[in-house]
């Protein structure tokens, strides 16, 4: 190890892998659409964790109130006026290993339930998002696809 070239190689390897790690972690960042196509979710990073906000709704207006949809099923009554557009659906995901983010939650505005959630990246444009209750066996996996502005 006294050989400076060996040392150089070691450090290069170390930092390259750190970069790769960070890049892999940030692969999640972007705009995604669940299989039902009803919303578009932008995943971004706050601190060291990943969060996903609704940035687009197929039906933004509530058919009953004729106003923009709000989080009316939230179990916390004080928060039922939070607009769904801009709502953080995915919260607190941490990068576990290549293509896998864990320890997060996913919220279903349809019933006001928050599920434990893991995200697996099948390829750079496809996510398997599994929401579950307690243990992974009590869960359901949905396929999300990456969106981008169409190149001219």
């Amino acid at each position: 190890m006294k050989n400076p070239i060996n040392l150089f190689l070691l450090f290069t390897l170390l930092f390259t892998s750190t970069i790769t790690f960070a890049q892999q972690a940030d692969d999640l960042v972007g705009v995604w659409e669940p299989s039902n196509g009803k919303v578009r979710v932008k995943i971004e990073k706050i601190g060291t964790k990943y969060f996903g906000r609704i940035v687009w709704l197929k039906a933004p207006i509530d058919s009953v109130t004729n106003k923009p949809k709000v989080d009316k099923n939230n179990p916390d009554e004080a928060l039922r006026n939070v607009p769904l557009k801009g709502f953080r659906l995915l919260k607190d995901f941490t990068f576990k290993s290549a293509g896998e983010w864990t320890e997060g939650t996913i919220y279903d505005p349809e019933n006001g339930s928050t599920y434990s959630c893991t995200i697996k990246m099948k390829n750079k444009n496809t996510l398997d998002i599994r929401g579950y209750i307690g243990i992974s066996a009590f869960g359901r996996t949905d396929v999300w696809k990456r969106l981008e502005i169409k190149k001219q």
Binding site: T48, K49, V70, V82, P83, K91
Partner: peptide, 16 residues
């Protein structure tokens, strides 16, 4: 909302 590196994000208040 409040967020933290080791704590889950929490929505705490709204005006709408």
């Amino acid at each position: 909302s409040l967020a933290g590196d080791k704590v889950d994000m929490a929505q705490v208040a709204v005006a709408n």
